[in-house]
Design a binder for these strands. Structure first.
Lengths: 216, 216
DNA sequence: TAGATTGTTAATCGATTAACAATC
DNA sequence: TAGATTGTTAATCGATTAACAATC
């Protein structure tokens, strides 16, 4: 059957909750590095992050033994390892579909903070493209996506089109062979099995917030 | 239907996984309404959404008995009930802290799709405020947040400031008495116990995507 | 009434926490 | 060596799934 999950240490599958915690570990380790901290124990990390020390050790040991008994973890080493686990030691080519304010904001964010993701192409409506410029990215209307992807290796597509265009844009990038979708459209997309989609459903998050506030 | 008021069955605590699924239920029900579908069974919803029918019934029954044996659920009724559960039948007053491209994009989004959230105040650096206008929102520099909140009831603050300003902005809105934070800063904020914070960590989501793509 | 489907209890599964031997 | 802390196995807890009686 389908099994496109990444497996470590004799095909043990990594659970989603673990994967979701990885970026947070890396974030805290990055902070510690900035503060000049060289080593950290699972106990100290536990205090900082609010996970149990046990969970932290369990999580990390899904991927290998990165610590040293009696000492703890070397901060910079662990930071780097987690980066590798998440594939952040590689470069990725990304196209943006829909370059409104949200697309522009995210493009700026990536350019500033996520340099291993290179924005190689930007696609929007025909009457918008003439006003678009972003670094050395190729800019064209959406009909050109397939052609562009056939000429360049593209790893992922950022979707920031209006809701009504979302599924169509998604279909287009999937047909173009792109295997990763970063979806900001607030629509649940139908995708082929071999494509991975990460959703940033802003409204879901807002509604969770209102849930928690409603009786305050 | 034995229970058409949204009343939680005696203080049973609702787990986070359940809460996170609520917006998605509502989204699918909204789609069904648009398609003119009047009733739906947990089995059909299961096919659409990929949750088990059992889980769907369990989730809903945390909040009440909304269905009818032998019939299923009335789509519009269930949609409305879930909205109430999430507090979407109320109005909320929101201030925005940091009105760069991201803040503007989200403001536009809320204005278009999330009308029960009213943007009442926008705060940014002193040299930025003169160029800012958004509907009837009050615009001022960040030092005025506390004062504004003392004069108006403000339910939540959207934080879209740069990382370096995030904790300070957070402290300010907390001191001003705001109990809900919608955090887009990619920083893990330290907040008082009685404040609820929803994080939209875009980079975490991007890194999860790269995790899933790295071996493709 | 017969069929469908819920609401709910019971069983299972998976994730988290605890415990501790290994070892730096 | 003694103390600290990991890596890992075992126990617990909570969430998901299955089963089925209730009932529309």
């Amino acid at each position: 059957m389908k099994n496109n999950t990444v497996q470590y240490k004799n095909k043990k599958k990594i659970s989603e909750p673990v994967i979701r915690r990885l970026p947070r570990y890396r974030r805290y380790l990055g902070e510690l590095m900035k503060d000049g901290v060289e080593r950290i124990s699972s106990g100290k990390l536990s205090e900082m992050m609010g996970y149990t020390a046990s969970q932290i050790r369990q999580d990390l040991n899904n991927f290998g033994a990165f610590g040293q008994q009696g000492y703890g973890y070397k901060v910079d080493f662990l930071y780097e390892q987690i980066g590798k686990i998440m594939g952040l030691d590689k470069e990725y080519s990304m196209v943006i579909v829909g370059f409104g304010r949200l697309g522009q904001a995210i493009a700026g964010y990536i350019d500033q903070y996520e340099k291993q993701f290179r924005i190689t192409g930007i696609f929007d409506l025909p009457d918008k493209v003439e006003d678009i410029e972003f670094k050395d990215a190729y800019v064209a209307d959406m009909d050109s996506i397939k052609d562009f992807c056939s000429r360049h290796k593209v790893d992922m597509a950022l979707l920031t089109v209006p809701r009504s265009e979302a599924q169509h844009a998604c279909d287009t990038v999937c047909e173009a062979g792109i295997k990763g979708i970063w979806n900001f459209t607030s629509v649940d997309l139908k995708i082929p099995e071999d494509v991975h989609c990460e959703n940033v459903h802003m409204s879901d998050s807002l509604h969770e917030l209102s849930y928690h506030l409603k009786d305050k």
